[in-house]
Every structure is written in structure tokens, then in C-alpha cells.
Design a protein around this nucleic acid. Structure first.
Lengths: 192, 192
DNA sequence: TAAAAATATTGACAAGCGTCAATTAAGCGA
DNA sequence: TCGCTTAATTGACGCTTGTCAATATTTTTA
């Protein structure tokens, strides 16, 4: 077997992550104690320190983990030729969100973490700059800024709504929706 | 009188800031306690909580204060006409650094705060995008990214060296040096 | 499957945290 | 200058933190 870590570690981290996400839904990180997380996760408080330095360290590392997965997916879709690449990319991203729904929902929802969203934006930003075919209507550098901010913030908003609404639609359906919104604008989708 | 806050508040905050900067020079934020800061600043521990929620809150707010001053200076130089605007801007920025040498040196030095530097970069980034005259040699959006990263990272490196070296040169001299490096490149300066 | 390795638990510790009411000190405006 | 307002100090409180050695449990390896 492999899968990176010991099964016990995976289990413990999963429990702690779930607990933190639940607590984050109620109050800010600064008001959450290690003891609370351990209690809610039903693990020993000492065990927490076997994995994280403190509560801020835990939050930061969970975010970084997710951003890394996100970044990996984005970068694995290097297709510069056609815009057919967009749908598969979006599908994978929505699937990733679904897998991490609890934590992701808190991070990008209201009371979300601005720093996290900023890092997200930068990942997409690089993607937009690297792939010309997504920048169909762009002329100058100045307009580009507005364009990518529009797309990214819009996508984050859609994702937040999807997560907080209980993920009624499939990742593929969401990917299709967002693809059309990006390529054709909201108006085109509304008419369909 | 005015100056924003009560003289006692200014004094207390100054003492705490100095203490935090000294401690940050020795170890990371996560290893610094409120008690240490209060003791080093020679103020009562309870007084700390009159101003900040916890040690992370203090660090974040000091950074934001400095970034705001930085941003204000950058934005007050809106000159789009000639590159004569660059030197006055740089002079003011170096003067600001000198005023906040202790904290600034820690933040941008080795063991500095990446998040802080990232915010700094974004401020400069906006400036570069807004003012065309700084972007003399830029053609495409792709090159722009490299360009501004080169300038900003370069400037931060120069500032760090200046601060850690005890600020032997005047702000004006540094501004002149950096101005030439930005406009003409390092080669031109080395020949002079 | 048994031994070895890694992980989690337990209970306990000193230290730090965040808060408070009461008091003293300092700055401010009239 | 005097009185009012605001800030800082003091001492104390119960709780949380981060760490530890000893132990139990689970997983991996041989």
C-alpha cells in the first residue's frame, strides 16, 4: 500500500479537517481553539500537535493543499489550440470542489478567506495569460485586468452558490454552464 | 492638537511596534508571545489587548498600515506625462522606508513575510499598469508580467540590502540609483 | 503471524492567554 | 489652571496552550 500517508494519519487529518470546517462555518479562525477542533474531531488534543503547529498553521496548510490541487489541474490543461479544452478543465475543477465541498464552501463563502481567494485568482490569472484562446475579446493590457477579474470573481461566486446550495447540479452540468458564460457571456445562457 | 490619536496611544504603540520588530528579527511570529512583546516594550500585558486582539492581529495591522502609506505615496504621483515623476516618487518611498526601518527591514528581509511582499508587488503592479510611461519597452501582456516582477523584486532586494546595511546612503541617493536601474538597466549604472 | 515501526492516547505540567473591576496616571478642552 | 475624559496599570481569575514521558494501539515488514 501507499497513498502517501499511513491510514491512521489520513483518518485523523480527515476528522480534524471536517471539524475545522464546521467550526469555521460558525466563527472566525481567531476564535477557534485547538481544544475545540480536537474535541469535535474526537481525537486527543495532543494528536493535533503531531500534525500542526497551531490553529493558524492548520488552516494555512489546508488551504495550500487545496490550492496546489487546483493549480495542478489548471496547469495540466495546457491546450492552446482550441477552446475545447475549457470544458474538461472546468469539469475537473468542479469535481475537485465537490470532493472538498465542506472546506471549500467555507473558504469562498461569505466570511470566506480573502487571502485564499486572492491566491485562487492569481492561479487563474496565470492561466489566462498563458492561454491566448481564453482571451478572445481582449485588446489591451488594461482591459485584460478587468476581464480576468470579471471571470474569476464570477466563477467564485457561482461556485459559492453551488456549494452553499448543496451541489444540486452535477460538476459536468456546472462546467457546461460556466463554459457558456465565459465564452458567450451571461446573456447567451439566459436565452438558451 | 490632533495627529489622530492620543499621545499615550502613539507612545504605547510605538513601543510595542519596536518590541515586535526586535523579536521578529530573532524568530517567527508563531513563536512570539504577547507577554514577550509587553515585557520588551515595558508596558502592561493587559494594555496590549487594549489595542490588538492577538499577536497575529498586531502583525497584520502593522503591515496594513505600512502598505497603506506606501499605496498613498504611489497613488499621489499620478504624473503620466514624463518620467520625471519617477525620482520624486522613489525618494518619498525610500524616506518612508527609513522612517519605518526597523519593521520594514524585518518584513522584506530574509525570513520576511511573503504575504506582505506580495501585497507590495500588487501595489506596484497597479502603478505600472496605470502609468504607461514606466512601461517603455513593453510590447505584449506576457512580457509585462516579467517586466514588473523584475522591477519589483529587484527594488525589494535593493531596499532590503539598504535597510540591513544600516542605511548608509541617503533616500535621495537610493532613489537616484534605483531610478537609473529601472530606466536604463543595471549595465548603464555599472558603467557610470 | 510475529516482530518492528509508526501513530495515537493518556495524564500531567508550567506557561501563556484573554478578560475583568478597581485604581492610578496622563492628556485634553474650556 | 481645573475638571473631564481617556488610557494605562494592577492583580487576579479560569481557561487554553504546547510539550512531555509513558503507554497502548495500529500498521507495516520480514
Amino acid at each position: 500500500m501507499a497513498e502517501g500517508e499511513d491510514r491512521r494519519v489520513r483518518k485523523t487529518k480527515k476528522l480534524m479537517t471536517k471539524a475545522l470546517a464546521e467550526l469555521l462555518a460558525q466563527k472566525p479562525l481567531s476564535a477557534i481553539s485547538v481544544r475545540e477542533v480536537a474535541e469535535l474531531a474526537d481525537i486527543n488534543r495532543g494528536t493535533f500537535y503531531l500534525h500542526y503547529r497551531d490553529i493558524y498553521d492548520m488552516a494555512r496548510r489546508l488551504q495550500d493543499e487545496m490550492l496546489e490541487k487546483f493549480d495542478h489541474i489548471v496547469k495540466s490543461h495546457t491546450g492552446r489550440e482550441s477552446s475545447d479544452e475549457l470544458f474538461p478543465l472546468l469539469s475537473e475543477l468542479f469535481a475537485l470542489l465537490a470532493e472538498n465541498a465542506e472546506l471549500a464552501g467555507v473558504l469562498i463563502g461569505k466570511n470566506g478567506d480573502a487571502a485564499f481567494m486572492d491566491k485562487l485568482k492569481n492561479i487563474v490569472r496565470e492561466k489566462c495569460l498563458a492561454d491566448a484562446h481564453i482571451m478572445l475579446n481582449i485588446k489591451s493590457g488594461g482591459e485584460f485586468e478587468y476581464f480576468y477579474n470579471y471571470i474569476v470573481s464570477g466563477c467564485i461566486g457561482v461556485c459559492a452558490a453551488w456549494l452553499s446550495g448543496g451541489m444540486k447540479e452535477t460538476p459536468a452540468r456546472m462546467a457546461s454552464l460556466v463554459e457558456r458564460m465565459i465564452l458567450n457571456g451571461v446573456g447567451a445562457v439566459a436565452q438558451a
